[in-house]
Design a protein around this nucleic acid. Structure first.
Lengths: 145, 145
DNA sequence: CTGTGTGCAAACTCTTTGCATAAGT
DNA sequence: ACTTATGCAAAGAGTTTGCACACAG
């Protein structure tokens, strides 16, 4: 509850624009999330990072904040096989490469048009979200598992 | 451990073809999985169905069997947002519609070419799997959540 | 018979929740 | 001040695991 004074870059106005109260941990977590380019991060990793940066936020709070950010649209979340939830600071229309060997995740932009345009929703429904994860494995290794 | 005699349709040879020992619960679960067309099912639902059909298999065994089937390629598995693992008896190249209101899942066949062909894997990697889940919501309801 | 599969319950991981306290406007 | 957020620990869901017993080949 006694974090170091946070240099509130553009973070505070960002939170306010989304109608969120600028608390210490939200400011700190948002700074970690948005000050290093696009990130794909789990709650526990962000919590660990925060701790290293002397931004004290419990894991529960990290989850609360990330879920809140996802609700308002500051980040996007998706779930990996295995059940881990990834929070992605890139909220644009894109797919993901998942490197099975390293666990790394990278963005893949879509070429032709919006992702959702490739699908025709059934009558009465509209597309809320399209999650695409392309799982990659090393070539040389056994290619057939 | 004393299930009713299972009418081993084509199931037994199917298992044997995949190098799997034809145990009672594998036969029974496979029958449930493959005798009703394509299915999208979770372990606990399959376990419940099995119990109704007097095919006694513990939840742990259902998980073991489903994971085994997925390993050898009898079924495909993917994870939904929320972390639930779905086992899909359709092992062809396809995407999924997920109906947020009902929880139902349906297959969406791909139009132009293989799914994996839409992505160019980085040097040294090959595509192991492409998971596409299109989440659908009712049109009339609040479209912006 | 020999090895493998199964059942059960406990362990495990990831995530959410309840309640008292602390912080934000 | 008044309201909302946080911390902690416990609960919760989903899945895996260890070990003794049962079954398949």
């Amino acid at each position: 509850m006694s974090n170091q004074p946070i240099p509130s870059v553009q973070i505070r106005p960002l939170l306010e624009r989304y109608g969120l109260r600028a608390t210490r941990q939200r400011l700190g977590l948002a700074k970690l999330l948005f000050s290093k380019g696009d990130r794909h991060i789990t709650a526990d990793v962000l919590a660990a990072e925060a701790h290293e940066s002397r931004i004290f936020a419990s894991l529960a709070t990290v989850y609360n904040v990330l879920n809140l950010f996802a609700e308002v649209g500051l980040v996007r979340s998706f779930t990996l096989e295995g059940g881990k939830t990834i929070f992605d600071t890139n909220t644009t229309d894109h797919c993901h490469f998942y490197f099975e060997d390293s666990g790394e995740i990278t963005d893949v932009m879509v070429k032709g048009g919006k992702l959702a345009d490739h699908f025709e929703p059934p009558e009465g429904y509209e597309i809320a979200k399209v999650d695409v994860v392309v799982r990659l494995q090393r070539k040389s290794a056994e290619s057939k598992a």
